[in-house]
Amino acid sequence: MGDLTVNIHNLKLKNPVLTASGTFGYGLEYDDFIDVSRLGGIVVKGTTIHPRQGNEYPRMAETASGMLNSVGLQNKGAKYFATDIYPKLLKYDTNILVNVSGSTIEEYIACAEIINELDHIPGIELNISCPNVKEGGMAFGTSCASIDAVVSAVRKVYHKTMVVKLSPNVTDIGELARAAEASGADSLSLINTLMAMAIDAERRKPILATITGGLSGPAVKPIALRQVWEVSKSVKVPIIGMGGIMNATDAIEFFLAGASAIQVGTANYLDPMITIKIIDGIDDYLNRHKFSSIHDIIGGLQL
């Protein structure tokens, strides 16, 4: 058994496998399928200060090797999370991060302040990359100035580990990653979904009610790998890589590209046990290649 432990700032992960926000609910939905405490961490559903109903239906379109969603941050708000969900998560022996989002900087701050009070939530993932909301979300994540504004503002009120989730829908992700790091991010996670659309030719209409949505699944993996690689050359903070990871081999590719940990997203829909299989598969890979630790392969791409 290789050493799978990694640190992301102050977070000590028993293994480098986390779940991507919006694909794992609050973890509770997976209790029938897996022992959630085996995971390195879970990132719970995108949370905002005010409850949000999310977008109109249809919100999902299946595409070649992937899918589009336009859920639009449907959630019951930070206070509901703190009072109704948080107590149920105390049973888990894993790192629980809350994905924090907002329409304005004030909303990000207010949400982060509530989460900051929860003792057993050791970190947040600041979502400045949701492509499915009209205001805020990705708008914050696509320029250095707006990244600086929101990340610096939340940094002032949030004192635990702050991961900033980057958007792939940008020209130079390295530059934006440096902006997030300079503004106080302890870690960067990427990629969020890619802005995309699907059309029903017979009806001559968009499939999604919002016309555009976010693409995820194996279709996006090559783009995600390239962006993780670029960001790993641009910043010193640890990177959490994601985008189309369907198995342990995919995960290994992200470590080689420079990620210290990974998140599994859309694959959870197809196989709710996939995260456990990926943890075991990473261990098998280390043994097969006679590596004693996951650190032997992080950034280990041979050029």
């Binding site: 919006g22 794992f24 609910g25 939905e29 999902m60 299946e62 859920v71 959870n268």
Partner: peptide, 17 residues
């Protein structure tokens, strides 16, 4: 009936009002 990505309440795609 609805189109679903997961089937167990995590993707929030198959909503009805």
């Amino acid at each position: 009936e609805n189109t679903m990505a997961c089937g167990f309440g995590v993707c929030l795609c198959c909503i009805t009002k």
